[in-house]
Structures are given as structure tokens and as C-alpha cells.
Nucleic acid binder design. Structure first.
Lengths: 332, 332
DNA sequence: GTGAAAGCGCTAACAG
DNA sequence: CTGTTAGCGCTTTCAC
């Protein structure tokens, strides 16, 4: 169907290998011959079959990316950055969403391996990654992003400072006079959620009140019930710290305009347009993706240095909601 | 390095082909033999090299997806849906962002073709797709999404009703008494932008005033200047129609709370949380992606019916900003 | 400079 | 039920 190198060789009246040389810009081909080959390629509309090249060379020039959900702005930011770096290295990206299901994560990773990707970038959904051991041993490097690999797997990891960010947020609220700070986080099974909870507890110290902590998948009704209960207490929270972007948005909807200090983990588009603007602890998804991808390509290129564990800083972006005082009035 | 079928065959004491049969679940293998092979596979940690299979079968079980930017929520929605459908068909997705650059689009498409993807889904950035002719002729089906292919290329296309949606928005404003409706759209070189402009003009008819139309890349300062100019006129607009999600957000920022009726094309997260809620013409990115992918897989499966041009409906979501009257007061 | 031959790991086609 | 042979399209090796 499609013309092959053999066809081009016949058309140009040269040997197969000469075509290969021209296609790969290898030196040692007479300029006139090369020109004849190029003409034949043009005439036949030849394009190299990468599958055959891959089979022979063992390098696919592609990497696998497993994230939680491309539809989520945080992960699509990571995605975009990874793609960018991959292009720069002449590599393509095979990507898939795990939807927070460990089985799906495993399936995607193994499928990518079966395609012999040169490397893997994984936002893990599960906590058992023993299935990766064989692939790592076979020489496929992997970098974990946003969450660490399960126990027993020593692998490059790029995280952001979850606990530190949470401390930052809570300290910001404490400095403005709050003593009753509630926490709405995602399921503690998720690494980032439990790390942020840890930072929250560390910052609050003796002020921790278990009744002000709720860790669960954020549904609107659920959040509403939780907030109603908390705000109905004798000593209700005067501030709220939400554990990720989805929690923040859910909480904002559930609050229905009730005025309470709020800081959310994760920045989101339009946070500045709400009234008051939503103060957040901002991560840098693009930075996360870029650093992870660059590390991966270093490994692919043969870097066998010790396992790296990189923590990216986060920063607090004050927009108003986090600067409301315990009495409901804005503070410095 | 990695074990091959040959290794497994040796380990199990059978012929290569028997291993192949077991790996592919082909019938006609003695249960005991199959078990022996499976044990060998397990022992050696064998996983099939998909590259070799691809080379032999000519099917890569992968499709290429070219969008404008994975980081954009609209396109990541499309992406997610495509991925979903692909998984269902046992296919992987190679994806890349064109960043609205025709050269990048072409490069991505051709790279995917060189990898022999089974099919292509393309959100075109450019308007010349003659480079695709050879690939289509070679039997690689393609579906264009969101925007049609350039002239001369008869190919399956899934669009949404851009002009109809724009009409819907403008008529909604007209019905509430507006006579001065401005339009802030993206560059008219982009198909969706010019289609929406067309719908806007059709709905307004004689009320069109060229001074109320601005079509350009939406920068914040640019939007601010345009809006200042328009709102400073003797007969300023009382309503604004924005041509896509980015334009809407930019306009909202530029307006800085100035109260004017507004309807935007494209829905966006948190539109309901702003005050007033932002009325929009909502597309269905997931639907767009799903329909396109399903059509593509029908083609890959051999459907050679006539070229399809599918238009997806849009719907108006009233949230408040589009229901402000010419005097600035809410209307029914 | 150029070319012939071998083989990457697998599946298709046929033979036993 | 099992095995043998050929060959997908390319790169590698070595010979001319």
C-alpha cells in the first residue's frame, strides 16, 4: 500500500541502504545520488515507517504519561508542560487518565510499557506499585509526580510542598486573629490530602478541634451538610482552609455567599474575579510537569545518578478571602 | 535484554507459535501446554513487544489527536472524551497541542502518520490541509473537530452550531430590550470566531454598528481599551456578547465590575459563582470529542459511507448577566 | 561511496 | 493440537 524504502530504492535505482542513509542524513552519500533519492521519495510520497525503525533500534522516542484526569486544569497544566519538553527532545507523549483508579493506572502503565515507551511519568492513583518493579529493572525509567510511589519502590519523584503550603495558609489565618479554623479536605487515602492535613494540624497545634476537620470526596450536598453543622456550633469556625481546587469550589458553592475567611489549596482561574477574591496556596502545575519531564529525559539519556526527590515550593496568593478577620471584617 | 517469545518458547519447551497462540488467546492449545507457557511467561516476566506486532499487522491500535492546547479546559474536555472512546476500542491516544500554529499542526499530524496511527482527530489551526491528502489516500481516516478542514479536502467534520449559538445569544439580549449590543471576538482568521460574528450580525440585522465590533486576540489591556472606547460613546452599548471563553474572562476582568449585560460563548467553571452569574452559550466539549472519536473508529473499522458533517447543538444557560436590561436592572 | 545480507520480535499461512 | 517457514520495513554489519 504505502511505498517502502525498497520502493524508493527501485525508483531511484540505488540500494536500499543508500535510501536509508539519505533518510537519516547519514554522511557518505554522493550529493547527486542523494538528490536522486530525494526526488524518488518526493515522487512516491514516501514517509518512513517508524514502527520498523523502533523494532530495530529498540527506542520508541515516546514517553507515557499517566495522570488523574486530563479534564482537570491542574493535570492538563502538567500535561502541557510535559508535552512541551517531550517535543523538545523529539519525543511523543502517550497519555491516559487513571480517574483515581489504581487498576486503571496499572493497566495504562503496563500498556505503555508494552509499547516500549522510553520512559514514564506517573501521577499515581494507587499505593502499590510493585507491578512496576520489572519494568524499572528492564530499564524503563519512571518519574512520579504530585504523589510519591508506594512503599518499596525507590524512584525519582517530584512533589510540591503540601504540608508547608498548608502551614502557610493556616499561619496566615492565625496571624489575622483566627483561632477556629476548619479544614475541608479530600479523602486521606490521597497523599496530597493527608499531607495538607498534616500541615494544617502542625500549624494549629493545640487549637486543633477534630470536629472542624472533614476529609471526604467533595460532593456539594456533603459539603453543605458539613458546613451547616460546623457553622451551627456554639463556637463555630471563623475561617476555612480547603484541601484542593475541587474542595474550594465546592465549599464556595455550599457557602452561598456566607462571609467567612477562606484559603484554598490550588489556584484556579477566576479566583480573582470572585467577591471577595479567593486567597489560595498556589502550586505550579507547569513547573511540576517540566521538572519531571526534564528529569525523565536525563534518565533516558543515561543519567544513573542517585534517585532524586524534588520538592517544589508553593506560594500564598492573597486576594481578599483569606484576609477576612474573625469578626468578618477585612484585616491587613 | 527483555525476554522475547523465543525465550518463553525455550523456557516452556514449546514452539514460538504456541507461545504466540497463548499470548493472543487463540483457540486450539492444549490446556496443559497453555498453562506451561503461562508459567514460563510469569517466570521470565515476559511482556509482548507491541512494536513488532504493529510492524507485522500494520495496525498500531493508536490514534493521533491534535488540539490547540491541552491546557485549555475546552480542549482538555474534548481530549478526555476522545481518550475514553479510544480506550473502549483498545486504542491509545497520541496527542499534541498546535498552539494555534499551522506549522506545528502539520508537523504533529505528519509525525503521527509516520507512527502509522490508525486515524487522526484534528482541531485545525491552519486552513491549508493539502499535506493531508496523501495520508488520506493512503487510508488513514481523519475527523476534523471544532473547525472544518481547509478548502479542497472532503473529510468528516464535527462542529458545533456557532452561528446559531451567537444568534441565540443576541436574540436573548434583543428580547430584553437591548438595541446596542457589542461583540468582542477572537481573530476572524479562526473559523469559530468568524462564524459567531456571522450569527451576531444576522441576529442584529439593521442594528449592527461596526464601531461595536472588535475582533482580535484577547489581551487584557486591549480589551480594556476597546471597552473604554465603546462605553465612552454617545450611544454606548448596553450589552456585550463575547466570542469565546477567553474573551469572556478577559472582558470580565476589563469591566472591573461595571454593570452591563453580558453573554459569553462557551461555558466555564465558576460562571455561576460570579455576581451576577455569567449567562453563556454552552457547547459540549465532551460530546464533540465523543462523537468525533466514535465516527473515527467507525471509519477505522471500515465504514466507507459518504463524508459526514455533523453539527452539535448549543444551548443558552441564563445565569443573570444576560438578563440585565438596557437600564442595568434585571429583567425576566 | 555503495551494496548485500542478517535480523529486530512478532504474526500469517501453511504443514504435519 | 503443534510446529515450520516466511516476511512486515527498517537499521546494523560488513564487504566491495
Amino acid at each position: 500500500m504505502r511505498p517502502t524504502m525498497k520502493d524508493v530504492a527501485a525508483e531511484a535505482g540505488v540500494a536500499l541502504k543508500t535510501v536509508s542513509r539519505v533518510v537519516n542524513n547519514e554522511p557518505g552519500v554522493n550529493a547527486a545520488t542523494a538528490e536522486r533519492v530525494r526526488a524518488a521519495i518526493e515522487r512516491l510520497g514516501y514517509s518512513r515507517n517508524e514502527s520498523a525503525r523502533v523494532l530495530r533500534q529498540g527506542r520508541t522516542s515516546s514517553i507515557g504519561l499517566v495522570i488523574e484526569d486530563v479534564g482537570d486544569p491542574f493535570y492538563s497544566g502538567v500535561s502541557r508542560a510535559v508535552e512541551e519538553v517531550a517535543i523538545k527532545h523529539g519525543s511523543l507523549v502517550l497519555s491516559g487518565s487513571s480517574g483515581e483508579e489504581p487498576a486503571r493506572e496499572k493497566e495504562l502503565v503496563l500498556t505503555f510499557c508494552t509499547r516500549r515507551v522510553d520512559g514514564l511519568i506517573v501521577v499515581p492513583a494507587g499505593s502499590d506499585h510493585s507491578y512496576l518493579r520489572a519494568e524499572l529493572d528492564a530499564g524503563t525509567p519512571a518519574v512520579f509526580v504530585d504523589r510519591p510511589a508506594g512503599p518499596g519502590l525507590d524512584v525519582d519523584t517530584v512533589l510540591c510542598d503540601n504540608a508547608g503550603g498548608a502551614r502557610l495558609a493556616v499561619e496566615h489565618l492565625l496571624a489575622r486573629g483566627h483561632r477556629r479554623v476548619a479544614f475541608l479536605g479530600d479523602s486521606p487515602a490521597i497523599y496530597t490530602a493527608s499531607e495538607r492535613e498534616r500541615g494544617y494540624r502542625e500549624a494549629l497545634g493545640d487549637l486543633v478541634d477534630e470536629r472542624l476537620i472533614s476529609m471526604a470526596q467533595p460532593s456539594l450536598d456533603g459539603a453543605r451538610a458539613v458546613l451547616d453543622r460546623m457553622l451551627g456550633m456554639d463556637d463555630p469556625p471563623t475561617a476555612l482552609f480547603t484541601g484542593n481546587g475541587r474542595c474550594t469550589v465546592t465549599a464556595l458553592r455550599a457557602l452561598e455567599g456566607q462571609r467567612i475567611a477562606l484559603i484554598g489549596f490550588d489556584d484556579f482561574e477566576l479566583a480573582d474575579l470572585l467577591n471577595p477574591g479567593v486567597s489560595v496556596v498556589a502550586q505550579d502545575p507547569a513547573g511540576l510537569g517540566r521538572v519531571a519531564a526534564e528529569l525523565l529525559f536525563r534518565r533516558i539519556a543515561g543519567d544513573v545518578g542517585p534517585v532524586e526527590r524534588i520538592t517544589q515550593p508553593v506560594r500564598l496568593v492573597a486576594r481578599g478571602s483569606g484576609e477576612i478577620g474573625p469578626t468578618g471584617m477585612p484585616t491587613g
